[in-house]
Design a protein around this nucleic acid. Structure first.
Lengths: 232, 232
DNA sequence: TTATTAATTGTCAAAAAGACAATTAATAAT
DNA sequence: ATTATTAATTGTCTTTTTGACAATTAATAA
């Protein structure tokens, strides 16, 4: 059997930046690392890529183990491969960012794996280059959300326009005019208005909407220009 | 010394999709593979990631070796990691796409490494999953070029508006109205008109332009919306 | 002087974006 | 029963951008 002689071999890991939205702020899911080095320090959800799985497979497996969820929105960020990023031995890591509906997340699994949600702007220091990963993922989320309707992945099936607007404002760290926002969201044709109202936030109540899945899938790659004042 | 016991180790490679523009069509640079398996078949420019370099370093090294060029525009595409993508042993590859001015490319290096330019739409079948990589890179180039002024990387320092327009049309596989195109390009403020004319293409001649490097760097991350009819 | 050819430039209508605040629908208070 | 309160919802005007259209210009060749 032929071999690629003399070439070095490395460990390969995946690390997931899991974003959620609690109705007010962006959050990320962190775990206490279970192995040396840096055991018991806060870390992204990650694991090694197994012999018979692709990095995408590994990310999905690791996410299911830590959140109980399948079919999560997952996107490859980039590879992190500085020679000394892991002090034990050379390990490269494929960064992924994931968007989940924070309400689907099961606390029981939280307890099993010591996972915990943190405000993105008030999180503990992370191991290795994980802080860099979070920063990169944050940027990519903003970039992508300006053009494609990915933020719906962080909301429940039924949501209101005010909820959606707060999420957009949070991701882009900006205030958006209510009238212009609802006009723009409406013009995408992605939302279906429901008869039911959410009365928890006000006396008047806000109508629930859901995503039109067909249009969502059909238009996902289109450029939507969802954020005002994008031009320099 | 601590070790991550029991985890499998893999080879890691980089593969570069090198784009160029000959004034009429998009081209990619391919090499004849120099090692088994699939020796002498056409392949992307690639190599293994060495023990003391990051994947980015490796891509730059491999590109310099095959093109003689440094400081090439390089962007990480994604990782390719299906377990059996390499028949010899498990090798994951980080795909990069590169944009170069085809005129800077030295033929002498071409001969050393048997590298050759091919029309993107008329290229030989490639080894492993390299055809998939080219297809992905092609898509990403179009996506990125719709929003950011990266196509200048494929033109010489001095270029004309008609040349630029043909490049845009080629990348997006569409015809663009001359008047609207020059208005839009002009409104970016990225171009500086030179006194000199290119007389090779017509009797009247076309004015040369160059990129305003300061504005280019300052506005690179801004969304430019350079391609007409982007909306669904 | 005229013909030829590609480069360059202008106008108008439609659509989108941005700035701006009044109205509405419910509940709570009187 | 009426009024006060509060957040949700909706409308108009102006400015900017886009898209669809062809005439003019600058050079060389005939």
């Amino acid at each position: 059997m032929i071999e690629y002689s003399g070439q070095p071999h490395y460990l390969l890991a995946v690390d997931c930046i899991v974003f959620g939205f609690d109705g007010e702020h962006l959050k990320i899911l962190l775990v206490k690392r279970g192995l040396e080095p840096e055991i018991n320090k806060w870390s992204l959800i990650g694991g090694f890529v197994g012999a018979n799985e692709s990095p995408d497979d590994a990310a999905n497996r690791v996410l299911k183990k830590n959140t109980g969820l399948e079919g999560i929105y997952l996107e490859q960020l980039q590879i992190y491969g500085e020679p000394n990023r892991d002090p034990i031995e050379r390990t490269l890591s494929v960064g992924y960012f994931a968007l989940i509906d924070i309400h689907k997340y099961q606390t029981q699994i939280n307890d099993d794996y010591h996972a915990e949600w943190f405000l993105i702007n008030d999180r503990p220091k992370l191991i290795f280059d994980h802080d860099q990963m979070v920063s990169d993922a944050r940027k990519k989320l903003r970039y992508k959300a300006a053009l494609h309707p990915i933020l719906f992945e962080m909301l429940p099936k039924k949501f209101t326009i005010p909820q959606l607007q707060i999420l957009f404002e949070e991701v882009n760290d900006t205030k958006i005019d209510t009238r212009n926002f609802s006009r723009k969201i409406g013009s995408t044709g992605l939302l279906i208005k429901l008869a039911e109202k959410d009365k928890s936030g006000s006396k008047k109540g806000a109508f629930y909407f859901k995503v039109d899945k067909k249009k969502y899938n059909a238009n996902f790659q289109a450029f939507l220009n969802l954020i005002p004042n994008l031009k320099p």
